[in-house]
Design a protein around this nucleic acid. Structure first.
Lengths: 231, 231
DNA sequence: CGCGTTCTTTGACACATCGCAAACATGAGG
DNA sequence: CCTCATGTTTGCGATGTGTCAAAGAACGCG
């Protein structure tokens, strides 16, 4: 799979890995196409594989006991995901669903220890990733504890713009279909409130919305809003 | 230090470790007494050591850019804490402050790799711990996204009762000084709201409060409240 | 033992946000 | 090209929670 290899090479994770090792890793992988709306794995299922997203976009969601859904994170190309086993879990804590046509590589979890053994760098990266995720989670808790909805939404949108933004002139378009509902589930609010807020922003010329579309027209303006100390 | 060793032995972390290894670990450690209000380490400081709480109780806090504080977690005896380096971080993400007279063991972070090497079980436990923490963080995000304050507070109190509860007849007293402010910072609300809620609970006979004191008198009742689907 | 600090309780009020409901827009598929 | 499903906008009323303010209670310290 030549295409895979050259693509994989562009990811930070494999940057410092030599060709032989990369090859070895890929040799054991299975590539899988995931159409929009389909899940790579479901919350609670036995964690049989871990994954690397080659192309596309996924959202990882969790459902609460009483049926409400939240988006835990968005998976971008180059991200490792679903490595529950590295954390000594036997099942997936969330559901990973494609929001855009995606391609993912997968490995059986049993292979994880070998890989780590053979390539300590992988372990380090994995640790860093997990550390980052923990930090992100805490940042989100901090936000939800102390900030009003508008600022939270602003942060979320800016984050998306940074991670999945596509420059279009002075504006940045978010590169995959995302609904108000999605943003609401990422920020702990309702789609109604998100819609209202974004309408206001649109009036101010900060963003431009559309059905499952979102473009940030004034990054600085939105940043200012996100950082504003109330009062 | 015989006392340390026999105490340490009671912790799950060392349960399956043989005496020689335990001894070796302890040999490199430094024991430190932490009076109430004092910090073991501060947010942003270089992560020079990692720790094990022997006795007492700590709270780990973070301050937001605009000065608000949140409690990230409570550290109980037997817990490993401050191992930022295991996550490839060079500084501590939060501040650990004693809320009760405490004793902690510490090791230089440089020793971490050796320990892990020598005792793989430690690595596994550490991973599990981190996994748990990530999960807890997500659970908290879920709660904050979907539940009203009263349920969140109920959950927080029940968690504390489980982790730091001391049976007193049918009731469970939380075994360290905790203020309404603390609970507010754990649940993302204000001390006023917490106070109001707990007054209501007290009227219903669910809990009994006092200055920095809290006793759950009716665990089942409170649990019911925590799980209640609104409506 | 009394003083002052810290923590807690309570009231009144404002307001952000949710819930409900209905109209509207957009894009996909026949 | 029309129609239906899905996503979006908007209004209105209800209300949970934050904010401000002040009094009261508990504890530590001199």
């Amino acid at each position: 799979m030549k295409i895979d290899k050259s693509l994989v090479r562009t990811f930070p994770l494999f940057e410092k890995m030599d060709d032989a090792d990369t090859e070895a890793l890929l040799a054991h992988s299975t590539s899988r196409r995931v159409p929009v709306g389909e899940a790579v794995f479901e919350q609670g299922a036995a964690a049989t594989h871990f994954f690397l997203l080659l192309h596309g976009r996924l959202k990882v969601t969790q459902v609460t006991e009483d049926g409400q859904q939240i988006i835990v994170r968005v998976v971008h190309p180059g991200d490792l995901f679903g490595f529950a086993k590295a954390l000594m879990r036997s099942d997936y804590p969330g559901t990973a669903t494609a929001v855009a046509e995606s391609i993912a590589l997968s490995w059986p979890t049993e292979l994880w220890p070998q890989f780590v053994d053979k390539n300590p760098r992988l372990a380090v990266t994995a640790m860093q990733t997990i550390g980052q995720r923990l930090e992100e989670a805490h940042a989100r808790i901090r936000e939800m504890s102390t900030q009003e909805v508008e600022r939270r939404v602003a942060h979320a949108v800016l984050r998306l713009a940074k991670q999945a933004g596509r420059k279009e002139g002075g504006a940045v378009r978010i590169d995959f279909p995302i609904s108000r509902q999605d943003i609401a589930e990422m920020t702990g609010t309702t789609l109604h409130t998100v819609s209202r807020i974004m309408s206001a922003w649109e009036a101010k010329g900060l963003v431009e919305g559309g059905r499952q579309k979102l473009t940030v027209k004034d990054v600085d303006g939105l940043s200012a809003l996100a950082e504003t100390v109330k009062g």
